[in-house]
Amino acid sequence: MADRLLTLEIFRYNPLTPNIPPRMQAYQLRETPGMSLFIALNQLREEQDPSLMFDFVCRAAVCGSCAMLINGRPNLACKTLTQDLPDKITLMPLPVFRLVGDLSVDTGVWFRDLSLRTESWIHTDKTFEAQGLEERMDNPTALSIYEAERCIECGCCIAACATANMRADFMGAAFLNRIARFLIDPRDERPAAQVFEVVGTDEGVFGCIGLMACDDLCPMEIPLQGQLAFVRRKMALAGLWGK
């Protein structure tokens, strides 16, 4: 497989030069062993086209910056190896999010807005005592919170979601998972009924139409289907009995 000549067809558009319309531009590149899209795109930028816009930060699949459509499927570019792709590779920016330019999209603002809307922080009436011991928690609970907390806000589940592509106000799997994270955290004192106000809606858990592309495509392999089912069940109960 190595030593192939790869063709990368890349979406190009710079919003600051609107007279040049959006287009696909093809680049050719010699494949090297173990080449990832991180290596390939940087090589293209440094050697062929220094104006090419894309985002990488950690290049280790932990920060969520580099999600894009790779041959039509959302994934993290840094951990995608060219050896797993055909000779021709098409790269497009994630849909749903505002385009910054070329392959770069604005996930940061989108996720912060949703954090605000869902009040994604611990709600408690307790105050922090600097001198006391920490509040105890059993380890399985800590691990189950961590399981949901592993989300890196890359946006793959949002880009892959039929509902999110149809309605701009849908929270998507990332935030339903975030809701689940706070529902299982004993430190968060919000009653389920209060969560229901925010999530028990069409923009929230009842907007999901169950296609589960989020679960298939999460690069962190977070069990989103289970998390969605958990939130839906909780919200259904809260809706029925107001608790």
Partner: peptide, 18 residues
């Protein structure tokens, strides 16, 4: 130690002693 405990108060799911 204060910093670690405050982060716990703010929601960090520290691994716990079993």
């Amino acid at each position: 130690p204060v910093a670690v405990r405050q982060m716990s108060y703010w929601g960090v799911p520290w691994s716990r002693v079993a």
